[in-house]
Amino acid sequence: MPGLEESRVEELEEIARRVRVHIVKSTHEAGSGHPGGSLSATDILTALYFEIMDHRPEEPEWPKRDRLVLSKGHAAPALYGVLAESGYFPVEELMTLRKLGSRLQGHPHVKTTPGVDASTGSLGQGLSIASGMALAARLDRESYRVFAICGDGEIQSGQIWEAAMFASHNKLDNLIVFLDRNKLQIDGSTEEVMSIEPIISKWSSFGWHVLEINGHDMDQIVDAVDRAEEVHGEPTIIVSHTIKGKGVPFMEGSLAFHGKAANDEQLETALKALGENDGGDY
């Protein structure tokens, strides 16, 4: 297995670092948002938009593009960070997150933000939308792929399992889902609130091809998609072990920053930890 060149991994990690800076700063500026679950999904999103997906920032509606449905819509700051880094809109615009009149709504909205492929935010709905997109690709004999990112707490929702059944019944092998397994939801650990384990056997028994990776390892993320591509007749779910708040030590594994932004002091600490010593004015 050749894997990514070391220098490429470093490039991707540098982009992910910048995206983390965007997440911390934009939610701080907004005074609200969900940094924890955004930081856990950052490496997956970075690998998708900078290594895996075929897309055109200069032509967001390009019909043959690969799609991404951020089913855990509260990780919007991470998606916006990646889209801005890709060139869909200026990086400076990230500071308008959640503000009146902004194109960057609190949760992703297909009508306002270039590069956003689906409106999400009410958890549990994105996998159905992604399944519909994958069906359409097959119907149109197009080779684009549909990616979705689901939260781990999100799979407590019944609609996820309706969609899980549907995607495997329809053999949607052009659908690849990342499960952001950061182990926490707003009320506590997933296993305390409503246990979702055993995840692997649940999805296997629903007819899915299941992979398990470290969701912060660029090489593993890219490799998992390669392996998913080799499978025919089954959708793939990549159970990605992640750390909520990854990259900002005081947010890592912390429930407090599920749905709360950093204050001024915390912002400074966070930026320092992310190697952003100049405060990073846009």
Binding site: V69, V110, D117, A118, G124, Q125, G126, L127, S128, I129, A130, S131, G132, M133, A134, L135, A136, G158, Q159, E162, A163, F166
Partner: peptide, 12 residues
């Protein structure tokens, strides 16, 4: 619920 979401994906 899935029917409605799948419909959305097809429309998108």
């Amino acid at each position: 619920q899935n029917m409605t979401g799948v419909s959305a994906g097809l429309a998108l």
